[in-house]
């Protein structure tokens, strides 16, 4: 069972999408990641660099293409971050807009 753990590096929306995409495959070509997420080359390069520096992403050059893959620590960090997001979302559903008991507090 993955322990929920908020990860500041992964949480940025574009980086979360990059990680979510790469978690679903072994590796993916740069242009496929770019098109699937709908961002430009430069934006993907910038966020890939941040993830690579954090040790979450591997970049492999093969001829004229670049392949991206999540590292083991990247997968672990993503699993922890997603578990934390699910925990927060579930907590909100449990308590609802009126609090854990469903009461709105004393009237009057």
């Amino acid at each position: 069972m993955t322990q929920p753990a908020f990860d500041e590096t992964i949480h940025a929306p574009i980086r979360l999408r990059i990680c979510a995409m790469l978690a679903a495959v072994e590796s993916a070509e740069f242009s496929v990641v770019r098109d699937s997420i709908g961002i430009s080359d430069s934006v993907l390069s910038k966020h890939a660099k941040v993830l690579q520096t954090a040790g979450y992403l591997d970049l492999a050059k093969a001829r004229r293409t670049t392949w991206l893959s999540l590292t083991a620590s990247g997968r672990a960090a993503l699993a922890g971050h997603l578990a934390e997001l699910r925990r927060i979302a579930a907590l909100a559903e449990l308590t609802g807009p009126t609090g854990p008991t469903g009461l709105t507090g004393p009237e009057g």
């Binding site: 929306p13 999408r17 979510a20 995409m21 997001l85 699910r86 927060i88 979302a89 907590l91 909100a92």
Partner: peptide, 14 residues
């Protein structure tokens, strides 16, 4: 919680 839900929706979409 709203931003957590939106982030999870983004993940599901990808």
């Amino acid at each position: 919680s709203e931003s957590a839900r939106l982030a999870l929706e983004g993940v599901a979409e990808v």
